[in-house]
Amino acid sequence: MTVTGPRRVRGALRPGAGGPLGLRGLRGRLKGPWRVAVAEASMTPSILAGDWLLVDPSVGRWPRRGSVVVFREPGSGVLVIKRVAGRPGDWVPFSDAWLRLADDEAWLMSDADDEALEADGHGRAVDSRAYGPVPVEALVGRAWFRYWPVRRVGRLPKPPVPAFRRGPGPAPRD
């Protein structure tokens, strides 16, 4: 989606609504984090535990679907990493029904599927399916580049993630 000028300005004026600076202000954003180390396995196979990533902390609104973002997990406040699966205004399947994301909310999902995680001895992935939509105040940055380990250095793949199709009847279960 292209962001038009006036919208951007309006967004900036509304506190916490994901204007260019959001709630944290310019200084807060430039403080970082610029580099993060990944722990745990829910982004397998695209991002593995132990990967070192570069983060762009200057983002103030949810990046496009398929982007990898660092944010504070609702409830616990821990820094976590997930992929944007739904942006503000999108419909997402939630608990046998459809939910429309508000102006400042995103739907964040893990890459790994639960069976694979459980087979590897991990638990289920914890993402929006567990804690619901995430408001933009929780957004910390967009991860865009892997600089370690050497053999996997490069921009993070950003597969095209289609919007959920809101069909008739209950949502598909995964």
Partner: peptide
């Protein structure tokens, strides 16, 4: 020097 100081979790549950 290159190592990040921030850890982010690709969170999964470890239920007992």
């Amino acid at each position: 020097l290159l190592a990040p100081r921030t850890v982010v979790r690709a969170h999964c549950d470890l239920p007992c």
